[in-house]
């Protein structure tokens, strides 16, 4: 084989494999017993009980900013905050769940993606998706702190503790991390437990999806019962007139879907949700990566060819002399 032909074949082969295989991996499917939460923005009253319960359960300090030492001033997720209630404000901000001149609450926390970007990009498997429950967990003992998880997360959820010399990544692990293990014990997340209105509802993803769709099908103003706590055995339900829902369950399909679902009266792009298609970026990235490096076949072939060429070419001017 002539050198030129070899190179041509090598480059061509690489390109074909890269482009061909890139489409190979489809989105992951929800875990068999996927657990999740349903956040209904229209039920949220902004009491932040979930925020304080989260901090207590996870042993995290409040974020104190100057001028307000009494309250947790967390403005967004950070190394010290896994869950925060944010507000959508428009114009005069008078009417709840109204797009113009209205306001609405939105919860920011880990969405527990069905096809999690953080798990896909982590070089050291410090991010793991539970094969049974689909909960995305973090393991500090493996983590090197490269923060690729933050970059690979469509929601910018994993947060490094920049304010500490020996920090780690902070993210919601659905109260199931070692030492807490609420879900394994059959319990629910702290935020769902304390939510007074059922705005954050815990349960299996399937049941929550059904409940979300039931709510979207309600006529605005129709009085209905909203379960609270764990949808499998809810607390005394909350009775309320339904809001005018957007016909969109966030997390049903976005980038492969999420285990934490959101429904709202405000379009999700205005609540800060990212512009996601149905295909997960992780699946495309892994497609390319596996196309190029599956079983290291391509690099091995390339190395063999390169070794042959270099050997032949160095024999001519060995010892560095020409």
């Amino acid at each position: 084989m002539k050198r030129r032909d070899f190179l041509k074949a090598a480059i061509g082969g690489t390109a074909v494999v890269a482009l061909g295989e890139a489409e190979a991996r489809a989105n992951l499917e929800p875990a068999p017993e996927a657990m999740g939460m349903l956040y209904d923005s229209t039920l949220c009253i902004g009491c932040k009980a979930c925020v304080s319960a989260c901090k207590q359960t996870n042993g995290m300090p409040p974020v104190i900013e100057e001028g307000n030492p009494q309250f947790d001033s967390a403005r967004d997720l950070s190394g010290d905050t896994l869950n925060v209630i944010k507000v959508y404000l428009n114009g005069k901000g008078e009417h709840k769940d109204t797009v113009s001149d209205g306001y609405a609450f939105e919860k920011r926390s880990c969405m527990h993606c069905v096809d999690p970007g953080c798990v896909s990009v982590c070089p050291v498997t410090a991010m793991r998706r539970d094969p049974k429950t689909g909960i995305v967990s973090y393991h500090a003992d493996a983590c090197i702190g490269c923060r690729n998880c933050t970059m690979g997360c469509p929601y910018n959820v994993p947060q490094f503790q920049y304010n500490q010399p020996f920090g780690q990544i902070s993210k919601c692990q659905m109260c199931n991390q070692a030492g807490v293990g609420r879900i394994d014990k059959g319990g629910m997340t702290a935020c769902s437990e304390v939510c007074p209105t059922g705005a954050t509802l815990f349960g299996p993803r399937d049941a929550l999806m059904k409940e979300a769709k039931r709510r979207l099908a309600l006529k605005a103003g129709e009085v209905t019962q909203f379960p609270r706590g764990d949808i499998r055995h809810p607390f005394h339900p909350h009775e309320k007139a339904a809001a005018t829902y957007q016909q969109h369950v966030w997390g049903e399909k976005e980038a492969g879907g999420t285990n934490v679902l959101h429904i709202s009266a405000i379009p999700f792009d205005q609540l800060g949700m990212p512009p996601l298609g149905e295909r997960s970026a992780a699946s495309i990235s892994e497609g390319v990566q596996h196309g190029l490096y599956s079983y290291l076949a391509l690099p091995a072939v390339a190395l063999a060819g390169l070794t042959y060429l270099v050997r032949r070419n160095t024999n001519g001017h060995k010892e560095g002399e020409e």
């Binding site: 982590c122 070089p123 050291v124 490094f160 920049y162 920090g167 596996h290």
Partner: peptide, 19 residues
């Protein structure tokens, strides 16, 4: 961020081949 654990990337049982 966790430089003192950099060696984790050298330990094959940690490797994530999707990454």
């Amino acid at each position: 961020g966790r430089w003192w654990q950099f060696y984790n990337i050298l330990l094959p049982w940690n490797w994530n081949f999707n990454s």
